[in-house]
Computed example of a mutant assay.
Amino acid sequence: MTDTMLSESLASARRRLSEALAAAGRPADAARLLAVSKTKPAGMVREAWQLGQREFGENYVQEALEKQVELADLDDIVWHFIGPLQANKTRAVAESFDWVHSVDREKIARRLNDQRPEGLGPLEICLQVNVSDEASKSGVAFEELEDLAKAVLSMPRLRLRGLMAIPAPAADLASQRAPLARLRQALETLRQRFPEARLDTLSMGMSDDLEAAVLEGATLVRLGTAIFGARSSSHH
């Protein structure tokens, strides 16, 4: 992908987000674009940074760490870990990321808290919720969400910010909105339950359901292919 192509696709993604926000009657700055850079080379991330993108989402720990080393001079870049997180990878994530979207059990949260270096600020956390009741999908069940939130709120090196979901694909807008509405309602319930917490984040919406997500209050939408082009097939 050439520089001009990335510039155009990023501009197009930003335009799509701002049009979705306008259609939903929300302020222009109510949601941010998270550029999902998994499988993309560090050079492409640098180009997107030069075009003003600051927040990047990664799914694979080792690949992300290599990019972070190469991009260490970009001191205002914000790294979000958005993939499934195994216990043996929590230390690297706690040491090298700003956000983790995929916390779905207390054991993982506890490890991230204990392994977060003192010199860094608290790790920003979203709890991943299984909104489509898919047996194969990671995510905490709605009925266990409050207990997990309470546990994370008690951990000093973590800062609970909100919820994340990857709903099952749905064909039409109404079907896309339904699970996202449940996620929004779950966040509102947590806000009432824990008024002292800063629960301001709904990480939801990807290329196929961005408009539905923005209508339901998404504050971070995760776009990969729409910004960086089709994923390279050489992923390890």
Rank of each mutant, 00 (worst) to 15 (best):
S132C: 05
M204T: 09
S7W: 02
A151H: 06
M1C: 10
A165D: 05
R198Q: 12
R16A: 14
A94R: 07
V103N: 02
T2A: 07
L51W: 05
M44G: 00
V61F: 04
E55M: 15
A170Q: 12
E106V: 14
E66C: 00
I82G: 01
S207A: 13
R26I: 09
L148E: 10
V100T: 07
M155K: 10
A94Y: 08
A135E: 14
S12W: 00
P41Y: 10
E19L: 13
M204G: 06
V131F: 03
Q192C: 06
G139K: 01
G217C: 08
T2I: 07
E118R: 13
E146M: 08
V78E: 12
A109L: 08
A24W: 10
T225V: 00
F142R: 14
L145P: 03
P84L: 03
L74E: 15
P156N: 14
D98K: 05
R16D: 07
E19H: 09
M206I: 04
Y60V: 08
A212Q: 04
S203Y: 01
D147W: 06
A30P: 06
A30V: 12
R157A: 15
A87Y: 02
A92I: 01
L153K: 12
L153R: 10
V221P: 01
L6R: 01
R26P: 05
Q86S: 07
G224M: 09
S233Q: 10
E95D: 12
M1R: 13
T4E: 14
K89A: 05
G205F: 02
L33Q: 05
G57S: 09
A64Y: 05
E134P: 04
R111Q: 15
R191A: 06
S12V: 00
M5C: 06
P117Y: 15
H101Q: 15
T201M: 03
D133P: 00
R116I: 03
D75E: 15
W99N: 10
H101D: 11
P167H: 04
L160C: 09
T4A: 14
E19T: 09
I125C: 04
K38D: 02
D104A: 06
F228I: 03
M204A: 11
D73L: 08
T4D: 15
D104H: 12
A218F: 00
S203M: 02
R26Q: 12
L145T: 06
A174N: 05
K89R: 13
V61N: 01
D104S: 11
K137I: 05
A181S: 05
G224D: 04
E211W: 03
S154Y: 04
D114Y: 11
T4F: 04
